[in-house]
Design a protein around this nucleic acid. Structure first.
Lengths: 340, 340
DNA sequence: AGTTGACATTTTATGGATAAAAAAAAGAGT
DNA sequence: ACTCTTTTTTTTATCCATAAAATGTCAACT
């Protein structure tokens, strides 16, 4: 294999009989040079090849054309969809993306912040991680944008999220409009604002429609169990308890499928006996049966807004204070699990 | 916010009253220095903080402690699971991972190879991409390991994959053992060896059990349609055609769910009237109803083997020629969709 | 005391690129 | 032809860390 080692600027310069500075200016099309020189240099580059050494470039310019994406678990379709869209956005702009999977541990999050700092990333995208960002660890002014979580106040932190309150409201309202009177919610007992807001929306909808928010129908799972298993077990317990219910709002789609399977195994029909609605609108929700009514988050737009914001910050553009965070609308998707 | 700029080795050296070389040796615990000096330097570092500048380090050492992962689509649970495990492995070894999503386009693949080359990555993990790797683009000797695909011969390319032939055989055999006589296969018409091998396994199983491999039951989708939709439409067409069948081997789980939904919409019961089996064992296959029999790929092991191999290569260890590729066994998972 | 060796530390060169300052070349005007 | 601009190009310094070579220090041994 004739692997031709890439030439450095210095070597190109020698071959073209010009100085390294001239080559640099031609390559970056920055500064003055005559057309004649441009052709001369370009010819050598075409002939011998040149691949910039990003380490050298980063060192000199203290920026790296890379961004880090902090994500709890990339093997989760909602997060991976965000990552996909972020990657697409930044690829277009000639940035590379470091994937930083925290597995929900603070150690990994801290380690990655250190690493990203060390690697001179130009920006950090932080998806739904811990409450408190370890920004104090960072020694440079790296812009940070958060998705899906209101971070406690940190200097230079911006965020983009869906309207979870509205989603919780819409989901509950859908169940009410389809005739449900005793609606359970299965959510997660973490202080994450996301779950909190969905719960608020649920409570408000019940209130607005004059329904009682039964304490025993508000089930908050702890973090230890998985979404699917946790929701499945919770549903089984609810069934065994004998407490009547005719609708379940599961605050994400995996939980909703836990619910659906538990109901099916207990020969409770959906939507005839009990109606179910989820949240997120991941592919599973239309591909499985019964298809799941859910609240659609505009994941792509979330990613693009956040990426655009981060890019602006990286370019040193000043961002109006009213553009420091976006709350994107969500949409009710009606499918079989809440049909009449 | 009191963001303390990190000091460079030079500044640390000045504060500690030693030379930069000494600081470097202490930090990297490499070379000789007295305990006294170690303490002196460490004290300054503890007091003022030091964060290595990886750009400088990479430039000097021509390695970056990063690897690139080329993947067709990270928003696909099988790939994202691989990426997750690869990330975990390399995090432990103190490497960062660039995510390179090709969206199945050659342009992006080539662009990413150039970028990774430029960024001095120490290794590349290549997951099920195009047939021919654009390795000639690379100007340095970067080790490459492929997962899930036999690349045409390239210098320095190694690969790890599942035994797809055996998987195809096991899947078909399961259907046969559960009484199916007219078994369809729904796969993809790409030259990817993966699909080819699964098809071979299917044919061999039919042959071994004395069944006919009906041409009209071998459906190869083209790449344009999605797995789910493609399989759903294909199943609908098959039903409409009136050709009898009593088992379907869908060569991945998403296709299998396309099949299941098409059957359900046509009031064909699974597993009573038709039995269905998938491939991959992604989470959907146990979480949806009916739960799906499938062929489990040991994704974690695949990722770990490949990562270990890549790391060895990056460390310059010589790899025995018989360790240049691994073929890992797959496992039949029996669930409702093929129960009796 | 002087040579030798072991260890500790500093000096110097280097990796590849860019920006600023300096120098050289070309063009304009008198 | 000579000065003054303007444009082009080169020189130099710098980014930060590491490795190799050189220097320095101390103690042991003949």
């Amino acid at each position: 294999m004739d692997k031709k080692k890439s030439l450095s600027i210095k070597e190109i310069a020698k071959l073209a009989n010009v100085s390294v500075a001239t080559v640099s200016r031609v390559i970056n099309n920055n500064g003055r040079f005559s057309e004649e020189t441009r052709i001369k240099v370009q010819k050598i580059i075409d002939q011998y090849g040149y691949r910039a050494n990003m380490a050298a470039k980063s060192l000199r310019m203290s920026k790296s054309k890379t961004v880090g994406v902090i994500v709890p678990n990339i093997n989760n379709e909602w997060f991976s969809h965000l990552v996909l869209e972020i990657e697409k956005y930044f690829f277009e702009k000639n940035y590379s993306v470091f994937i930083c999977n925290t597995s929900q541990t603070e150690e990994k999050e801290i380690a990655y912040f250190k690493s990203l700092d060390s690697k001179l990333v130009d920006g950090i995208m932080c998806i739904s991680g811990s409450e408190e960002l370890p920004t104090n660890i960072i020694t440079r002014d790296i812009p940070i944008v958060c998705i899906d979580r209101k971070p406690k106040y940190h200097h230079n932190v911006y965020y983009v999220e869906s309207n979870h309150y509205s989603g919780g409201y819409l989901a509950t309202e859908e169940l009410i409009k389809k005739g449900c009177k005793r609606i359970a919610i299965i959510s997660r007992n973490k202080s994450l604002s996301v779950n909190q807001q969905r719960l608020e929306g649920y409570r408000q909808a019940l209130k607005d429609y004059g329904l009682v928010a039964h304490k025993e129908l508000q089930i908050l799972l702890d973090i230890s169990s998985s979404n699917y298993d946790g929701a499945k077990h919770a549903t089984e317990k609810l069934i065994q308890s004998g407490i009547p219910f005719d609708g379940i709002f599961a605050t994400n789609d995996w939980r909703a499928y836990g619910v659906l399977v538990a109901l099916a195994e207990n020969h409770i029909r959906v939507p005839e006996d009990v109606k179910v609605i989820g949240f997120d609108d991941i592919p599973i929700s239309y591909a499985c049966q019964p298809s799941l009514s859910t609240i659609h988050q505009n994941t792509k737009q979330l990613a693009q807004k956040a990426s655009g914001l981060l890019l602006s910050l990286m370019n040193g553009e000043t961002v109006n204070s009213d553009e420091k965070h976006y709350i994107l609308p969500v949409e009710l998707i009606q499918r079989d699990s809440t049909s009449l």
